[in-house]
Design a protein around this nucleic acid. Structure first.
Lengths: 215, 215
DNA sequence: GCCGGGGTGGCAGCTTGTTGCCATCGCATC
DNA sequence: GATGCGATGGCAACAAGCTGCCACCCCGGC
């Protein structure tokens, strides 16, 4: 079943949202879809209170979703209400929604004109996509972790130091390689450790590895 | 479109495999689907040689796919032919195949009797699932990396040392906490670094972080 | 009892890393 | 030109980490 435009989606598939009993998962690049207040209202109004026991809300987004203040506020509300939000560094479909592992709603790819949505209930499709969603979900980072200390976005200098440390050089060798004095190199290491909130070089390495700061 | 059993899939959808031009991606728990030699032959025989320029083969599997020798051999052949294989720690759909971002084949969930396959060409569905696949793919580890540098399975002692290091303690503090002399503690650290093939503590931390040896 | 091996711990000497202090330099501002 | 600020680098003292050497202890085998 295919519907065109947000209004029609709300009209034709709104009851699916209202009927959610156990799980509401959503993968999207950003929150633009629901940027139209009417659409978002219409749907979130129909949804269960997130706090309901046994009801799980999961949103998987890209960093793009954190771009504007309004979106961040909305995400804050979701997590406050018990929903879980994660951020994936990989590109995501424009919008994928799965309800109770029974119904799936996919937005069609970028196109001029009103957006199209495809609603599917085929168990094979839904469960397959759901599993794929979980695989993507498992490897994404929690919103809180992502926002807080995480990703201390390092500049080129820091990256260079990181690479030298990761290569296993001694300070002397690394400093020479980077054209720095040992003193300055060590200063950089100390700064790096500070931004990673690490007490030892080992800990710094651990953090760097966990955060995938190698590439 | 739905087909039952591998034989029917080959008969009805074999031409889709043969028609692959650019990309063949596949997410599955393991390789059991093609365990029947006839099925695999019928399909791989129709496929392009993997080496063809611009033709990409990607297989995303769970560690279960590495359980038996035959599967490992098959995967070796795929990589040798230029295909790319990655391992995901997250559970995966029983089988999802996407060809040229145009056709998608999903196996239905576990059920008695012959397996059912659903073949879809809806662009919205296919591109949505494809993006989801990429998100899962991006965060999976390469087969080679998974097999080689893999999990130098540490014993409890090593884990304890790892935790102490990760906590940022000095050797003195850590040794006291573990009820060891500083000398022995350092011996342990040295051993750990050896098994991680690290030249510095930082490098050891990095490796540990990358390998997810924190939990 | 005696022996040998493996793990342990103390010691010492060395390397490496950490930090404060200060002189210097480049640069932008006044 | 003078002033001030930030980054740099040399130096030194100290802390931390690394490792060889040897003594010790525990255990199992002879």
């Amino acid at each position: 079943m295919t519907v065109r435009g947000d209004a029609e989606l709300v009209a034709r598939a709104g009851h699916l949202f209202a009927g959610a009993r156990h799980e509401f998962v959503c993968a999207a690049r950003d929150l633009d879809t629901w940027s139209q207040p009417e659409a978002r209202e219409a749907i979130s109004g129909r949804m269960h209170a997130d706090g309901t026991a046994g009801f799980v809300v999961r949103k998987l987004l890209t960093p793009a979703a954190l771009a504007d203040e309004a979106s961040r506020r909305h995400l804050g509300q979701i997590t406050a209400a018990g929903g879980r939000v994660r951020i994936s560094s990989a590109p995501l479909p424009h919008e994928t929604i799965i309800i109770d592992r029974r119904v799936m709603i996919l937005a069609s790819p970028e196109a001029p004109g009103p957006r199209e949505f495809t609603v599917t209930t085929s168990p094979a499709l839904v469960s397959g996509v759901h599993a794929l969603f979980l695989a993507a979900w498992d490897n994404a980072t929690d919103l809180a972790a992502y926002l807080s200390g995480d990703r201390p976005h390092l500049d080129d200098d820091n990256r260079a130091v990181l690479r030298a440390l990761g290569a296993g050089y001694t300070d002397e060798t690394a400093a020479r390689g980077l054209g720095l004095s040992v003193r300055t190199y060590r200063r950089r290491v100390a700064e790096l450790m500070a931004t990673l909130e690490a007490d030892s070089r080992f800990q710094a390495g651990l953090r760097a590895g966990e955060l995938g700061l190698t590439g």
